[in-house]
Design a protein around this nucleic acid. Sequence first.
RNA 1: GCGCCCGUAGCUCAGCCGGAUAGAGCGUCGGCCUCCGGAGCCGAAGGUCACAGGUUCGAAUCCUGUCGGGCGCGCCA
Length: 599
Amino acid sequence: MVGLPNIDRSHVVKDVVADLLQRALDALIAEGKLPLTERPAIRVEHARDRGHADLASNVALTLAKPARRPPRELAEEIVAALPGDDRIDRIEIAGPGFINFFLATGARNAIVRTILEAGATYGHSDAGAGRSIQVEFVSANPTGPLHVGHGRGAALGASVANLLAATGWRVEREYYVNDAGRQMDILALSVWLRYIEAHGEAVAFPANGYHGAYVRQIAGALQAKEGDGLVHAAASVAHELPPDAGDGGDAEAHIDALVERARTLLGDDGWERVFETGRHAMVENIRQDLAEFGVVYDRWFAERGLYTGDAVERTLERLRRSGHVYSHDGAEWFRASAYGDEKDRVVVRDNGQTTYFASDIAYHLDKLERGFDRLINVWGADHHGYVARMQGALRALTDGDDRLEILLVQFATLYRGGEKIPMSTRAGEFVTLRELREEVGNDAARFFYVLRRCDQHLEFDLDLAKAESQDNPVYYIQYAHARIASVFSQLEARAGTWDRGRGLAHLDRLGTHHETELLAALERFPEVIAQAAANREPHRICYYLLEDVANAFHTWYNAETFLVTDETLRDARLALVAATGQVIRNGLELIGVSAPESM
RNA sequence: GCGCCCGUAGCUCAGCCGGAUAGAGCGUCGGCCUCCGGAGCCGAAGGUCACAGGUUCGAAUCCUGUCGGGCGCGCCA
């Protein structure tokens, strides 16, 4: 993916205009008419309101101050110095000093050829210049199936990764498997309790254990692998444990004691086999779930690996040496407050155990050592309290370099029949990603998840996502694509063929209002991708496809017949139809949604 | 109490590295139409951009404060 070709943009009218303005300014500066020391950056924008213009520039406004001239007067002078171009019909100066360009009919037609020639790469660019970037996302603890909240992180992370790849970054997608903590011990314990329960050794299930049905399934797998070799009598398991919450005790103390008991009864080897069965089953469950969702990783990084080696200790030692970690009150602290965090954070507890934060720093040091130019983490918004310390740690490890970016994803709420679906992790009310996918389909799920900005709460309307009507935005876009395929099969049914060369040779036959609108939308695609990638905002792709492309296409389709008898006109229109299909496919690809030929 | 995110049309949301008369879909109201692909097409009404200051030639957009909503503030993971 390194060295994506530089795309020739001489056919993109917006760039043509920017170039003309640049030349006009250069000329004025050379003639001494503009007292500017540096060459100003030119900005040309698509006019929001077509009544104003097709393209507009505010250079005269921004230059007014440094040039000490009234903006309108400046605009007049720039316009007078503009070289001619037959793609521009006329130029006006409006409002406080905008230079408005009205394009000649057909000025944008050349984009059709560009799109058809670039095909699947149309819209891509090389802004990333082959630099490397790692996107770490989802990274849910493998203690249960993914739920709908994780789905949003998955859809966002995958789409952002695609956007970066499309803009010339070398992207690596990674899942950090938190398989080393106490929660994993509790999963192993839960599995084992269900396993002995299936052998008639029922122990009261702990309040803080994992109650989900999937635990019994894993217990079944354990049974298949181990037979009854790991069964212990219920009485020996429950013997003299501190009381659980239901018996007026402390749920945490109870379950920790149960874990210890299981370890003792099973021995290191037996415990490890139970643990590994649970870990493996859950990681595979998640991997499979995501793969079905179209989310595939380059690497699954196991937290456990940090402990089998000396990564955590090595990281701490490095921070101690550089003075970022100090001892206090029997614990060791990372000097997070030096990097804008509210306070310093413990990395080694007074009992000698390292904290989760310590292994997270070690993990991120590992990322740095792998040489990524940039790192992106996608986190649930409930983790925002960790942003400052994590970025602080990264700066401490890189001498102040700001290489880690964290995208926080707000919560998603599901609605069915206008009613909010309650979402707690309590058994029964838990909505998994798999259930959601099965109900609305992968396409709708991927689309709705990234439809909103990630820092916006998401109201996910299940009924709308399932609707086969044009109210459903995914359907509306996919329908445009299917319609395009249908136009060509319709042509075939009438024993006609599309002469692509003739179409491209007669693009000047395009020029109606609807065609011009559609052409303008297609021309904008590379900018939309560039901006979506730079801001990590895949929702822009959704809105672009929906409001700019699909809408313009449907409107055109409804207004005009493509399959006319005039062959040059027909072939030119079909070229535009084909180009539209290409842009829709490319856009949907970025957000992981399929582009069906028929629906 | 402190910190982060968000307050835009009746509803759900775009627009936010400052730019002209703030947009879309749904809903509401009024007209057409059944045509390559199926309730579709065209149009209208509807907004002090939460509020108050500030910066600027120009603010929904940047800064400060207030109010409202969400989330987070362990030697938990």
